[in-house]
């Protein structure tokens, strides 16, 4: 009886400690969200914030339209490059990978995921900026694409591996070529997982500052020409937060809020899509 009570008290204590530590871990997350919302809302609550571009200090009506458009274009071009290559690479890893060569590919992917994004920015600078002697959105997209590629490849590989081999065999047993089974049977079955990976990489790329600092550089005006320098949300936050003017710092908070909401929406969408994948995989 006594032993039982001791066990119970140990049980309750450990549960309490676990809860307390979880709470502790959630505090920074909550604070970040709270600060971003509290400090960002004043700037972001004016509609013109979303439609205007930068104004000189203390001239009212400044906005971040150029940064929003810039981020959409930068990430859009990066996705156009990274998603097809990453998805095909992921299918290759999952479906055709048997040799030692593919272990190297996988290792390279994992190393690339862990590579500091500033190094990737430097790489894009050397390859896409320096030879042309000027900054451009394309070079920024190139850096972001390199960043997204390994994430997409590995999540695609994971999603394709989730598909039971019976599906592949059933397709091949009908006399269909292997590449058509991969692309038209396996890939659609894995689509939600693949989309999740792509969305997560988009979310990651949207929030990256370092690779854009010396590639897309920044631009105080609204620019849609990808061969020219382009503003983006994270770079706006970075620059404005460093300037000693309250109005500009408020804009930085506003831009940060927009960015957080954007990334949050992408993440929520990807979770929803992933849930569908799991349900689908259960049916196969």
């Amino acid at each position: 009886m006594n032993r039982n009570r001791r066990r119970q008290s140990i049980n309750y204590t450990s549960i309490a400690i676990a809860y307390a530590l979880t709470g502790l871990a959630l505090i920074p997350l909550g604070l970040v969200l709270w600060f971003t919302i509290a400090k960002g809302l004043p700037a972001a609550s004016h509609p013109e914030f979303f439609f205007n571009v930068e104004r000189p200090v203390d001239v009212p009506g400044a906005g971040i339209a150029h940064a929003i458009v810039g981020t959409l274009i930068l990430v859009g071009i990066a996705s156009l490059g990274a998603i097809p290559i990453g998805v095909l690479g992921g299918i290759y890893l999952a479906e055709y990978a048997t040799s030692r060569w593919t272990d190297w590919v996988r290792l390279a992917c994992d190393v690339l995921v862990g590579t500091p994004s500033i190094a990737i920015g430097l790489f894009a600078y050397a390859l896409l900026v320096a030879p042309f002697h000027h900054f451009s959105a394309l070079s920024g997209s190139g850096a972001l694409a390199v960043l997204m590629l390994p994430i997409i490849m590995r999540t695609t590989e994971g999603a394709v591996r989730l598909i039971p081999s019976g599906l592949r065999e059933s397709g091949l047993a009908l006399g269909l070529p292997r590449w058509r089974v991969s692309l038209q049977l396996i890939l659609p079955a894995a689509a939600p997982g693949v989309i999740t990976g792509a969305l997560l990489s988009v979310a990651r790329a949207s929030g990256e500052t370092a690779p854009l600092l010396f590639t897309a550089f920044g631009n105080p005006f609204l620019n849609t020409d990808p061969t020219q320098p382009m503003q983006s949300l994270p770079v706006t936050v970075f620059h404005n937060a460093l300037l000693p003017y309250q109005s500009l710092q408020e804009q930085a908070w506003g831009a940060a809020l927009v960015l957080v909401v954007m990334v949050l929406l992408i993440n929520l969408t990807s979770r929803y899509v992933l849930r569908r994948q799991i349900r689908l995989a259960g049916q196969l």
Binding site: P164, G171, G175, L185
Partner: peptide, 30 residues
Amino acid sequence: NLLELRQKVGMVFQRPSPFPMSIRDNVAFA
């Protein structure tokens, strides 16, 4: 010619593995 062989020699597995599509498309797929 594996593809021709597998069209001539079909296979039904232990698990039916329905393709993730409609009943009609399952048959029409190949």
